[in-house]
Each structure stands twice: as structure tokens, then as C-alpha cells.
């Protein structure tokens, strides 16, 4: 979820994040699950958000656009480092 927000930093909103995560996981994430997860990440201080002006495509409703905080960037960087360390020592299987 954080990675999806990072890819569209500043312009990431629920629907866009949901599509990214759904494509990544290979199954559809529900709109409600996306909403609650983004809300929780914001409460934890990993994301910050702002609302846009009302948009006609949303029936006159605004969007809430998310951006990673410094803490969010740190979590992502730490996760990336952990994954690299985990896979770095593994041998190559199959055609490289």
C-alpha cells in the first residue's frame, strides 16, 4: 500500500492505490479495505493527505490525495533494504 502511494506521491488517491495493489496481488482489493488501510496508515503517521476541490467525475465529491511522510519513506527504505538482504545471499535459480 505504501509502495503504491509512493509511486504516485502527492496524487495517489484511494481508487488509484486500490488498482495498483489489486494488480500487484492478483486479486481485487475492496474499496472499503483500501479506505480503512489508508486511514490507518495516516493515523500511524506514515501518510499525510489533502482534499482536492469537488470533481464532476466523482459526482461533485472531492478526492483525498495521499503523500508519504518522512516516516513513511523510512519504513519503505527499511523494507527494501530488508528484502535486498534476504534475497542477496540466495543463489540464482533458472535462467537469469
Amino acid at each position: 500500500m505504501l509502495l503504491a502511494v509512493a509511486r504516485h506521491d502527492g496524487s495517489a488517491y484511494g481508487l488509484l492505490v486500490r488498482e495498483e495493489v489489486s494488480a500487484e496481488r492478483g486479486r481485487e482489493l475492496s474499496v472499503g479495505a483500501t479506505y480503512t488501510t489508508l486511514s490507518r496508515l495516516e493515523t500511524k503517521g506514515l501518510l499525510t493527505s489533502r482534499t482536492t476541490d469537488p470533481l464532476p467525475v466523482r459526482g461533485g465529491r472531492s478526492r483525498r490525495e495521499y503523500r508519504l511522510t518522512t516516516a513513511g519513506h523510512q519504513v519503505l527504505a527499511a523494507e527494501r533494504e530488508r528484502a535486498a538482504r534476504r534475497w542477496g545471499s540466495a543463489p540464482q535459480w533458472g535462467p537469469a
Binding site: 474499496v31 469537488p54 467525475v57
Partner: peptide, 17 residues
């Protein structure tokens, strides 16, 4: 049920369209 109904209902409306 939500803190910001525009966010959820707007996403639902946009995706529905």
C-alpha cells in the same frame, strides 16, 4: 460510518462510472 464520506463515496462513484 466514515470520517470523510467524499473519499469513500467519491471512489465508489468514480469506479462505478
Amino acid at each position: 460510518l466514515v470520517r470523510d464520506e467524499d473519499e469513500l463515496l467519491g471512489d465508489l462513484a468514480e469506479a462505478r462510472a
